[in-house]
Design a binder for these strands. Structure first.
Lengths: 258, 258
DNA sequence: CGACCTTTTGATTGGCGTCAAAATCTGTGG
DNA sequence: CCACAGATTTTGACGCCAATCAAAAGGTCG
């Protein structure tokens, strides 16, 4: 939950300094209108790694863009099992998909130290009403997110452990390179990887033990090296083949309506 | 693919006769503006059960609302396995989530005889530009669909065969009651159920053999009766409990922006 | 009636889970 | 700089859920 402690001065995250603006909700809005877009933002909030931002089923009256860091969206089942639904990286928009009572159906946790640009629902409505560019951009972002979610269904439904671990690694590794370049060392190919093996298991419906065995196999084959929250993919082509992963999905969201 | 054979006279499906308008893209548009909304529709097309409407990865220049019948969206893997991503019922909007080349990432097949209201992309853009009511509705529909998709991820990732078969049955059965009432006998509780057991397996990542065993168990416990494309749920509460299914998800999409 | 599709049943196999414990890494404070 | 607690990764033995293979039974339609 957001408390006073989380709220930072908006000045600390000015739109004009934003490195992920082009991928965000305002990605198609001309820079000259930056003051207009910034006006809609209500707050800039920070969270420390491990902080729970929102609890499944609580009501919520805002949505946000992740500016820095990494969040996970997840659900718990009665059995106590956790399913990670989505890994959120900078530029991603979060807070839609409410049920018919206006509740958000998943919990949100900061996986690493993170900063979000917050918009109250009223202001989201305003943005959409006043600016069809933003409405269209939101539709494109949603539809891009839907593609990723459907690929996850495909993974979980039909791929074996090796294939789906490879997919998760390739998807996240590629997205980090594009969305969070500060966490990616372009010289060495090493990325800061926000998920540990237990998290990966929770995203894939596997146990951490089995995830470990699969990754050990990849290391043996020389496809990647990794350690505590670090990941370096050595053979992207082979891993992509194993995963049936298509990089086209990760690039800039399609601009269907311009 | 759509051919001349599929195109029916638009008059055969007038908006004023439409029984699922309230759930569709035009659900929030006042009836007095019906002529305006109908103007955007380019074609009304019919498909027979089994017809493939669109092939994975082909380019496409339209989106549509399903008016009658039932469609499935699916992908094939290299292994030849099929994953059903979504079962489309009347009122649902289909044709977004393109990749950055404008391709649709899934195939579309008519599971039963079906009729669709087709909009070319240009007209979708026009609708959204000219009418923020429609844009907002589209955003709400997409976010509702996203919730359903995330629930599917939860099912596939963390639930066992019994739970996920129960979930699929409850989700579809409930949606048929709401979205396709002609296929639902409110006196007996019997629904026309568009998926056979092999299809259900392809939606859940299970084999048809195992789906059959699970359903046999439900029958033994007196939770449901079913036969060739028929389904009658006797004990909705027990099945919902097993499935951890929440009916709130199925009701009218949340109107977040009004 | 015969071809075909779907459902049902049985026997066997295997991929991944479960349980348990050791090894390694990380941060913290004395 | 080292000691120590806690988190994460790694390894091993064993078990089970759902897959696989195979075939029979039942429904549907021309």
């Amino acid at each position: 939950m957001i408390t006073e402690n989380n709220i930072a001065h908006s000045k600390t995250a000015d739109c004009s300094q934003c490195t992920i603006r082009s991928r965000s909700l305002f990605g198609t809005v001309d820079e000259s209108k930056m003051r207009m877009t910034q006006k809609y933002r209500d707050k800039y909030c920070r969270f420390s790694a491990g902080e729970v931002i929102h609890n499944e089923r609580d009501s919520i009256d805002y949505a946000f863009t992740l500016r820095t860091g990494c969040l996970i969206l997840y659900n718990y089942l009665d059995s106590g099992e956790r399913q990670i639904l989505r890994v959120v990286l900078p530029g991603d928009f979060v807070g839609f998909s409410r049920n018919n009572k206006g509740e958000l159906l998943y919990s949100i946790k900061a996986e690493t130290d993170s900063g979000i640009c917050l918009f109250f629902d009223d202001n989201v409505t305003k943005m959409i009403n006043e600016n069809s560019e933003i409405a269209k951009r939101l539709i494109d972002l949603q539809s891009h997110e839907m593609s990723l979610c459907q690929q996850r269904v495909l993974n979980l439904g039909q791929k074996n452990a090796t294939e789906s671990v490879a997919y998760l690694i390739m998807e996240l590794y590629s997205r980090i390179r594009v969305q969070s370049p500060d966490d990616f060392n372009f010289a060495t190919g090493e990325a800061f990887f926000p998920l540990n093996q237990a998290d990966m298991g929770d995203a894939l419906g596997l146990t951490k033990v089995h995830v470990n065995r699969v990754i050990a196999g990849f290391k043996e084959q020389g496809l990647l090296t990794c350690g505590r929250k670090k990941m370096r993919v050595i053979d992207e082509e082979s891993l992509s083949d194993i995963a049936q992963f298509d990089i086209d999905l990760i690039e800039e969201p399609f601009r269907q309506f311009i």
